[in-house]
């Protein structure tokens, strides 16, 4: 069952290999499908997972192309601030950015060879493109919920609560209950609540 008034939205996800970016993408796509929306997601596996950048997309409302080009995304979901900065050109002017504020330094930064861009700079660059943006302390809220990993659910909860997608927090809640293994549900439902509260604050 697809709604005739399906809103066309293109979401670009970016993160670091091992963070769970693809799992988050799949969960949100399943949420959309359960909500009766027309959905397509795209991802790239392989080399990217060896500590590299992981990018994926979710398209709502009938888009067919499993890949986004620069300037095509309505929403950018960043699971790491440097990757959010790197992916900014994929956002259309006036789009929305929701990003974790938790830094995962790349090797060249860890080894002291290059500096990590500072947060005010990242926010300033984001402001140039985004109509709205939020940097979310996902790790802290995830830890509060019971596991750092559930920080991804915090971010999904924030974007759903923002109203930018035709997917509400209630739909995400239903998807968590339906698609996550039982032992992970309590933590992720708590993370969902914390994300919602954080945005409302």
């Amino acid at each position: 069952m697809e709604k005739a008034q399906d809103k066309r939205v293109r979401v670009f996800f970016t993160g670091v290999g091992g963070q769970g970016t693809l799992t988050a993408t799949t969960l949100l796509a399943r949420t959309a499908l359960d909500a009766g929306l027309t959905v397509l997601a795209g991802e790239v596996h392989g080399m990217a997972q060896r500590g590299g950048v992981v990018e994926s997309v979710m398209l709502l409302g009938g888009w067919r192309s499993p890949k986004l080009d620069l300037g095509e995304a309505d929403v950018l979901l960043g699971f790491e601030p440097l990757e959010t900065l790197r992916a900014l050109p994929y956002l259309r002017q006036g789009g929305a950015v929701f990003s974790s504020s938790d830094v995962l330094p790349p090797l060249s930064v860890s080894l002291g060879k290059t500096p990590y861009p500072d947060m005010p700079h990242i926010e300033e660059e984001t402001k140039q493109v985004a109509g709205q943006y939020r940097f979310v302390p996902c790790r802290e809220l995830g830890a509060q919920a019971g596991s750092v990993q559930s920080g991804n659910t915090v971010l999904l909860s924030v974007v759903c609560a923002s109203g930018i997608l035709p997917i509400g927090v209630d739909a995400l809640e239903a998807a968590i209950k339906r698609h996550l293994p039982p032992k992970l549900q309590a933590v992720n439902l708590k993370a969902l609540e914390l994300g919602k509260e954080w945005l409302a604050r």
Partner: peptide, 19 residues
């Protein structure tokens, strides 16, 4: 109108690496 914002090649990269 299409985007003309280029990807910033100066940012520290994350090449795939041995674990």
């Amino acid at each position: 109108p299409l985007s003309t914002r280029p990807v910033n090649k100066e940012l520290p990269g994350r090449p795939p690496n041995l674990c």
